[in-house]
Design a binder for these strands. Structure first.
Lengths: 229, 229
DNA sequence: GCCCTACTGTCAGATTCTGGCAGTAGCAAT
DNA sequence: ATTGCTACTGCCAGAATCTGACAGTAGGGC
């Protein structure tokens, strides 16, 4: 195996393990000496890979991911660009900025003529969704990722307001509204909350007692019963 | 410069030139001998890069693009996935399929835990846009890309129908409708056509006489006048 | 204090890379 | 058909790089 292949292989292996892995283990897996592994790690770090090594522990790949060389057809690139453009117009500031950054990174490596086409935007996305939400959706996404509780004041369709503590596990992007899907401690049931009716959002520094994935699956099951498909 | 860096550099250079480039030129640009260039090309081809060499002409990179290793933050990946998912729900079959393919390719290289999260979809996209359009938007996109005329029957808001020949140059994705933006030969002006009011679409095998980019720019200018920004 | 680990320096041998040369073959214009 | 440009292959010797082994320093966890 050539050195360059091995370097990619090394990154992939680091991805799989999320806990720290010792250099010795990696070296064995790759069939190289520990010394060479250290050199490989140094090379990858030199190329910007976010690998952290700690004495006594091992190596971890920090969040943030390097996509290896990928082949996309031009329609696939168009699809990705159009999609990112749509996300960039969403009212979620952090996500929107992330989409714009991703677009910039992709554009930077496209061939000139295709980039021009994309800059010129033959594929347009509708007007930005109304940024009427007073809350920071980034907080919601973070709570979802970390399985943390959220507290807020909710004003329902009838206008009645109530203070809620919920376990959020999904965020829906619909035509005009963003919807937080969560288990509601008050109702002891799944509920969805329109983002524009939420106020006084605060992240609670307490993990909720169930796995996000499980909640999601159960919620899906409840959806399948009343409606077909 | 290490060999692996040079190989990436070589791909980038091939991207810039769209006409065939001789190996000698590339070798000079890279500061290596022609012999080594041939070896590099062979290596890239061995790794799946779509490089074609023809004797007497030179090298071309076939359409379809290899993204070099790119770093994305997890928010950027989320943005791309959410966007692609949105595109995948659009009624344009080909584009939708392309988005799904791109998603699959990206998912294939993500670390397990993140992939699970994404599969489980903590970021949801609203119900699929109504696929009421009777026409194939792929045809429209192709006409735009190739700067070809389109003919169709259009039924306007009042219900009146008319046969049109237009020069399409952009496609807008709005909340509920897709809109073809084009120069209309009949009206001798820019017009937009809601896709759901188009029928009997046929691609005309004749190039329209102006550059798409120019049309787009002019159209933009007409938009800026009546409305601010 | 002990063990495990990351990390660095050095060096000789293995491996790979590189450039030059010679030769074959395909494409295009003349 | 000839000429010129080009892609492509095989070969070889020297250059460059990589590799493993050993020795040694330093930091974290128990």
């Amino acid at each position: 195996m050539s050195r360059s292949e091995r370097l990619l292989d090394l990154i992939q292996r680091l991805r799989r393990h999320r806990r720290p892995v010792s250099g010795q283990v990696l070296a064995d897996e790759l069939g190289i000496s520990i010394r060479t592994l250290y050199r490989d790690i140094a090379t990858l770090q030199g190329q910007g890979a976010p690998i952290e090594g700690e004495a006594g522990l091992g190596y971890v790949l920090k969040p943030g991911f390097m996509l290896p060389p990928l082949m996309f057809s031009d329609e696939e690139i168009e699809a990705i660009v159009l999609g990112s453009r749509w996300v960039a117009k969403q009212p979620d500031q952090r996500l929107s900025a992330a989409a714009a950054n991703a677009l910039a990174k992709i554009a930077a490596v496209l061939p000139d003529d295709l980039r021009e086409d994309l800059d010129a935007s033959t594929l347009l996305v509708g007007p930005p969704a109304h940024a009427i939400e007073g809350i920071d959706l980034g907080t919601v996404r973070q709570a979802i990722r970390n399985e943390r509780k959220l507290g807020f004041l909710y004003r329902d369709a009838g206008g009645a307001a109530s203070q809620r503590v919920v376990w959020p596990f999904a965020l829906g992007f619909f035509d005009k509204v963003r919807v937080v899907v969560a288990w509601c401690e008050m109702r002891q049931d799944f509920r969805h909350f329109r983002a524009d009716r939420i106020s006084g959002l605060n992240a609670i520094d307490a993990r909720y007692p169930r796995r996000r994935q499980v909640l999601l699956k159960e919620w899906r099951a409840t959806l399948d019963k009343p409606r077909g498909s």
